[in-house]
Design a protein around this nucleic acid. Structure first.
Length: 424
RNA sequence: GUGGGCGUGGCCAAGCUUGGUUAAGGCGCCAGGAUGUGGCCCUGGAGAUCGAGGGUUCGAAUCCCUUCGCCCACCCCA
């Protein structure tokens, strides 16, 4: 706190060693769950050409309009730090000709995301997302599959009482008609709704349904719902998704006003929220994006996926009192008395490490008492004592730090003795 | 981007309303407790120009202004 010059930039954070077990656990769980669904990992660069995002996320969206970290590099290329995960994966799909692979191509990523936003709990300027994309298959089974994957992942972490909200926002066939109906509904009411909604009316009518202003609620209440105006194909698709979720016994609620902030979504959209709600709590969200690849210049190609925020998961895990699996502790702590013994101890440490053990030894010369205190706080189950007595006898004292039992073991048998006991 | 709350050693935190000797306490860290032994306990130590900058005053952590950061709501989103 002494200096405010050198600290993490606003909205970013260090992930300290104490928190790493959460991250390891979440990444391990992501790898395990994606394995069960046969999704394979992809990593894309932290930055892309700006147009990758402008073309897909949408010109008028908040992300593109005011949240991207965009810069010119020394060669005058305009680049943008990845503000979302889907577009880069689709870009990679196109760039590497993945349409010639069996469809859909199932991929996942664990990657940092950057958005220039006002930070608050659960919202940062750099955060990490675990996401999956299934590209090249238009069928509702795939929508349901990605939802199932996310649901399983969160359940695996022990997060309870999640709620899945589901909606269909139609496609290029039926959405324009719906937007017309929505505008027609709002036009006579523009005088009574909030300023933001008047902007939404022009820019992004779908978001009108999401307004929380009191004065706008009556307009929302009797606004037409997309579900009534879906075209036959979209309605059938949506019914398909729902019936598979029911088959898998994944509880969901239809959220007729659920829309998303990115332009590329079509048909299925969904969010998963935790039991205790605050304002920044969607744990994961996604949907179908059948027009996205085309916007990037490819042939029309369907796709569906989700992104989920790792920091938010950790927030929720901590609030729920859920702890990651046990932290790794050293196997052995070597204490020594005297210079000669120290050299012997350092040699032994190297030998034990070469045999796969995690070994800690004090530096410099500390009192035996201090060394044992350090051994205790290190969490090592075993201490080895090397001193004059031991050196003379060619033995080491091995102490069980749980029970306090000690025994002498010949130096040439130490490695074997400890390797065996640490395996139990 | 808008509105509100907060900011004291690594962490938690008293004090600030009623400005005044060396800025409590706890945790953690280091050392010692008759010299080869931990976890409890006891003693001691290191560590803070009280987020930063400026102002008012004989004197400010305590009052005023600015600024930065964190948190909450809006907005948006994972």
């Amino acid at each position: 706190m002494t200096s405010d010059l050198h600290r993490t930039p606003r909205g970013t954070a260090d992930i300290l060693p104490d928190d790493q077990p959460y991250w390891d656990w979440i990444r391990d769980t992501a790898r395990e769950v994606t394995r069960r669904f046969d999704y394979r990992r992809i990593d894309t660069p932290v930055f892309e050409g700006t147009s990758v995002f402008v073309r897909t996320v949408g010109e008028g969206t908040d992300i593109v309009e005011k949240e991207m970290y965009t810069f010119l590099d020394r060669g005058d290329d305009q680049l943008t730090l990845r503000p979302e995960g889907t577009a880069p994966v689709c870009r990679a799909y196109l760039q590497h000709g993945m349409h010639s692979l069996p469809q859909p191509v199932r991929m996942f990523y664990i990657a940092p995301i950057f958005r220039y936003e006002r930070p608050q709990a659960g919202r940062y300027r750099q955060h990490w997302q675990f996401g999956v994309e299934a590209i090249g298959d238009p069928n509702p089974e795939v929508d349901a599959e990605t939802i199932h994957l996310l649901w399983s992942f969160l359940a695996e972490l022990g997060l309870q009482d999640l709620s899945l909200r589901l909606n269909s926002i139609g496609d290029t066939v039926c959405r324009p008609a719906y937007l017309d109906a929505l505008r027609a509904h709002y036009q006579p009411r523009l005088g009574e709704v909030c300023d933001d909604c008047r902007v939404r009316y022009e820019k992004n009518p779908l978001r009108l349904l999401d307004c929380k202003q009191g004065r706008c609620q009556s307009a929302i209440a009797d606004a037409p719902q997309i579900s009534g105006l879906l075209c036959d194909a979209c309605a059938e698709h949506f019914a398909g998704v729902r019936s598979i979720l029911e088959l898998w016994e994944i509880p969901y609620e239809i959220a007729p006003r659920l829309v998303r902030g990115l332009d590329y979504y079509t048909r299925t959209v969904f969010e998963i929220h935790p039991a205790v709600e605050r304002s920044q709590t969607a744990l994961g969200a996604g949907g179908r994006y059948d027009g996205l690849i085309e916007r990037l210049g490819g042939r029309p190609t369907p796709g569906v996926g989700f992104g989920s925020g790792i920091e938010r998961m950790i927030l929720n895990l901590k609030e729920a009192g859920i702890e990651p699996p046990g932290v790794a502790r050293p196997d052995v702590f070597i204490v020594y008395l005297g210079e000669q013994a120290q050299r012997k101890a350092l040699g032994l440490a190297a030998e034990l490490r070469a045999n796969g053990l995690s070994v800690l030894a004090p530096t410099g010369s500390r009192s035996l008492r201090a060394q044992f205190r350090a051994a205790d706080t290190s969490g090592a189950p075993t201490a080895i004592v090397l001193g004059d007595d031991e050196l003379k006898r060619g033995e080491a004292t091995v102490r069980d730090l749980k029970t306090g039992d000690q025994s002498s073991i010949p130096m040439d048998r130490i490695v074997d003795a400890l390797s065996v006991s640490s395996q139990s």
